[in-house]
Design a protein around this nucleic acid. Structure first.
Length: 812
RNA sequence: GCCCGAGUGGCGGAAUGGCAGACGCAGCGGACUCAAAAUCCGCCGGGGGGCGACCCCCGUGCGAGUUCGACUCUCGCCUCGGGCACCA
């Protein structure tokens, strides 16, 4: 290869073939000594192929995996396909081809692209969620959750997308519209399977703050906290003639200011409370509220409306009778579906009270007030506030009032302190075709019977017509020979559940399956689980912060509690990568600025493309993709190529190293290592470029330095590094090499240019030996003409000497 | 409204409280060439001064503060990106 210029196409083809032949990227899963599970989010195999965002994420994760490999870990880096789900099915509907036919084609294209990237995927463990050998175990997981009492069926108001003709999880509804097609969702009532993720709300929250279990990007943890949405407050019972109405409040300290109550229109006590005279208007209001979709109900800034039921309740604190209203700003699905209205200290209640002329009482006042002045607007936060008009609690600071009213309620049996969560149970039913059938059989005698494990998988029947319809029943019901089965318990005629499960159930456990894809008789092998899990590093997009990542944690916890897993958090370290934009704008088909990776790889080579992606900005922040930018990394690789050639020609005598070069070399090893550790790939690459420039400037092609450059380059440009390694006369893969270490002492220069400041402004510079004494430096500084000019005979009041860094003289 | 990020040259971006602008792109000037590309060398935040090696002033979204010293820390704002939101 000598004397030839760098030809990425040839180099990449050669090394990809060798890696496959030599099984370079296939760790021994049973006997690995230092297992390191490097996971990235698997893609859904679209017809368009992988886009640059996928390549960015995968490259960043692969760089990390290759770095760990070079540090001596046995790295397992698998890849697969999230091929079930609405996205795949909708596309199949659009082109009129069964997804079972379409998906393998898309996967073949994805595999081709993934191989071109040159990542260290272990192809022996590739998986697709649509393989019966995979979804058999997805169904098994459903059964385990069912056994644990974590799966249940209920009729519920659900988000129905009229375009996709299916139920959507709350997480899939964005601003009232289907996240996929943008259609406004409607409210429907259907029998659905749910998982009791709310049982785990506190644990899901607590583990986020446990560094021994989780080291996650703050943005991701924060998104999960918001999503779980814990509020601390109290349940309070208000007595009525038909029994108590229970409310949830986060402000028990304002209990004395509760001058009326509001129930959600659907609240079960409304009928009993409504006075005959008010019946007509209550019914009309309830009807109007029911017609609204779930979403527009929740739009916050609209005019408050409501009607009086004619009923009354007793405020347990004041003993006074208060009116009970219904209004659609109170939601049945949060808290108890009923509130105590405190108009003095809640904006919504205030607006409502003003509109319907209900009493407003002030129960909080700031330190210098007695609370006698009427409120002009709601005062939810009173700084340094204390309770007023609150009987025996008057005068107490807010926090104390909160605590004492709660304990008073508990003593009196009229309420108790509780936490409330925003999180809802996870609805996993989908009335669609392209998913794993939920393994349940309905029998008129035995009810919902789980399919016995030996009968798994429940195969998805081949359907000619797999279009969803408006009935709310899955297309699977159309296959009668599939639908009708004997009851596994009693043998009488029964029928299958026709819903399939949510795609997020597939992805909630794929990290468990990768390790054990060759085992047909178990979902995951316990020894491998113990050796390799939890995942050491997981890298992916933050769009999955509250969907996939929360569900995967939940499933892991349940499996742990059932004794299947020895840990309860699946991903020890998670890092969210940034987003790539093109020329400052979001990529979109309509804008025509979508970057298709293939053409860049064809033109520049995968290594240059990888380098550029990792160099264009901090990995966790993303960056701006500009075509011109690829030239930089490519020029850099060309220069390294030439340098390697110089080494090849070099005699064995080597090159005498100047101390500055040695320092630069050691500094680079340190910077690249720490940069890779913290995913600061852009600065790691910059450090390599600097070293390169220094070597060229001093015309120094020292073999031992060039060798290190190649090793440090290997995570970013693996094919290129392998080729250079070979040209340097090495016979094994560069990934068998040891990661370079540095000598801390050699990262420090011998002679240092110390800036001399006068009153904080740099006025001169003196060169000193490292370790120079303060007095000597000051003396030298005072000989400097520029420094003297600024001191100008003034007295030095203070001198600040930072060893080997800086001298600051304060005068005046 | 609440919660997480972020704001630095023409552009992407660097800077454990210690010389702001590393590295790269683009641009400009020069070398090589019949010419162009590639490559190599040099310049490259703004303003001002000096024939010149150089020198001075200003400058990291805005305003205060802490400090010998602030892109970095504190407080108060503004803008952008993301999450949550009639959530009681």
């Amino acid at each position: 290869m000598s004397d030839q210029s760098y030809d990425p196409t040839a180099v990449e083809a050669k090394w990809q073939a060798r890696w496959a032949e030599r099984h370079t990227n296939e760790p021994d899963l049973d006997n690995a000594e230092r297992p390191f599970y490097n996971l990235m989010m698997y893609p859904y195999p679209s017809a368009e192929g992988l886009h640059v965002g996928n390549f960015y994420a995968f490259t960043g994760a692969d760089v990390h995996g290759r770095f760990r490999r070079l540090q001596g870990y046995d790295v397992f880096e698998p890849m697969g396909y999230d091929a079930f789900g609405i996205h795949s099915e909708n596309y199949a509907l659009k082109v009129g081809i069964n997804p079972a036919e379409l998906i393998p084609r898309n996967i073949a294209n994805f595999r081709r692209q993934l191989k071109a990237l040159g990542a260290m995927f272990d192809w022996r463990h590739e998986l697709s969620t649509t393989d019966p050998s995979y979804y058999r175990w997805t169904q098994w997981i459903f059964l385990k959750l069912f056994e644990a009492g974590q799966a249940y069926k209920k009729k519920a108001a659900v988000n129905w997308c009229p375009t996709d003709k299916t139920v959507l999880a709350n997480e899939q509804v964005i601003a009232g519209a289907c996240e996929r097609c943008g259609t406004m969702v409607e409210q429907r009532f259907l029998e659905q399977w749910f998982f009791r993720i709310t049982d785990y709300a506190d644990r899901l929250l607590a583990n986020l703050d446990d560094p021994s279990k989780m080291d996650w990007s703050p943005s991701t943890s924060s998104a999960q906290r918001n999503w779980i949405g814990r509020s601390d407050g109290a349940h309070v019972d208000f007595a009525t003639h038909t029994g108590p109405i229970r409310v949830f409040t986060t402000r028990p300290d304002t209990l004395f200011g509760a001058t009326f109550m509001v129930l959600a229109p659907e609240h079960p006590l409304v009928d009993a409370l409504t006075a005959p005279a008010e019946k007509a208007q209550v019914e009309a209001y309830r009807l109007a509220a029911a017609k609204q979709d779930i979403v527009s109900r929740k739009i916050g800034d609209k005019e408050k409306t409501g009607v009086f039921t004619g009923g009354h309740a007793i405020n347990p604190a004041t003993g006074e009778s208060v009116q009970v209203w219904i209004a659609d700003y109170v939601l049945m699905e949060y808290g108890t579906g009923a509130i105590m209205a405190v108009p003095g200290h809640d904006e919504r209640d205030f607006a409502f009270a003003r509109k319907y002329k209900l009493p407003i009482v002030r129960v909080l006042a700031s330190a210098d007030e007695d609370g006698s002045t009427p409120l002009e607007e709601a005062a939810p936060d009173v700084e340094g506030g204390h309770l007023v008009n609150s009987g025996p609690f008057s005068g107490m600071p807010e926090a104390q009032g909160f605590a004492e009213i709660v304990s008073w309620l508990e003593r009196e049996g009229k309420g108790k302190g509780v936490a409330q969560y925003r999180l809802h149970d996870w609805c996993i039913s989908r009335q669609r075709y392209w998913g794993p059938p939920i393994p349940i059989i309905y029998c008129t005698d035995c009810g919902a019977v789980p399919v016995p494990e030996k009968d798994l998988p429940v195969l998805l029947p081949a359907l000619e017509d797999f279009r969803p319809d408006d009935s709310g029943v899955s297309p699977l019901a159309r296959s009668t020979e599939w639908y009708n089965v004997p009851c596994p318990k009693c043998g009488k005629p029964a029928h299958r559940e026709t819903d399939v499960s949510d795609t997020f159930l597939d992805s909630a456990w794929y990290h468990l399956r990768y390790l054990s894809t060759e085992f047909a008789d178990r979902p995951f092998d316990p020894h491998r689980v113990k050796k390799w899990l939890p995942v050491a590093t997981y890298i992916g997009g933050n769009e999955h912060a509250v969907l996939h990542l929360l569900y995967a944690r939940f499933v892991c916890m349940v499996l742990h509690d059932q004794g299947y897993l020895p840990f309860d958090e699946p991903y020890r370290k998670f890092r969210a990568h940034g987003i790539i934009v093109k020329d400052g704008a979001k990529m979109s088909k309509s804008r025509g600025n979508v970057v298709v990776p293939d053409q860049y790889i064809a033109r520049w080579g995968a290594d240059t493309f990888r380098m550029y992606l990792m160099f264009l900005g901090p990995f966790e922040e993303g960056g701006d993709f500009r075509d011109e930018g690829l030239a930089g990394p490519r020029r850099f690789l060309d220069k390294v190529w030439d340098l390697v050639e110089q080494c090849e020609r070099q005699t064995l005598m080597g090159v005498e190293l100047r101390h500055e070069i040695v320092v630069k070399w050691h500094q680079t090893k340190k910077k690249v290592t720490t940069g890779l550790e913290s995913l600061s790939y852009n600065t790691a690459i910059a450090a390599l470029m600097e070293l390169m420039n220094a070597l060229r400037a001093s015309n120094c092609a020292a073999r031992e330095i060039v060798k290190d450059v190649i090793v440090m380059l290997a995570p970013f440009a693996p094919h290129f590094a392998e080729e250079c390694w070979e040209r340097l006369g090495r016979e094994t893969s560069v990934f068998e090499a040891k990661w370079p270490t540095w000598d801390e002492g050699l990262t420090l220069e011998l002679r240092i240019d110390v800036p001399v400041q006068v009153n904080g402004k740099t006025r001169g510079k003196i060169t000193v030996q490292r370790g120079a004494k303060e007095d000597d430096v000051v003396a030298a500084a005072l000989r400097d003409e520029a420094v003297r000019r600024f001191i100008d005979g003034q007295r030095i009041k203070k001198r600040v000497w930072v060893q080997d860094r800086l001298l600051n003289l304060v005068v005046g």
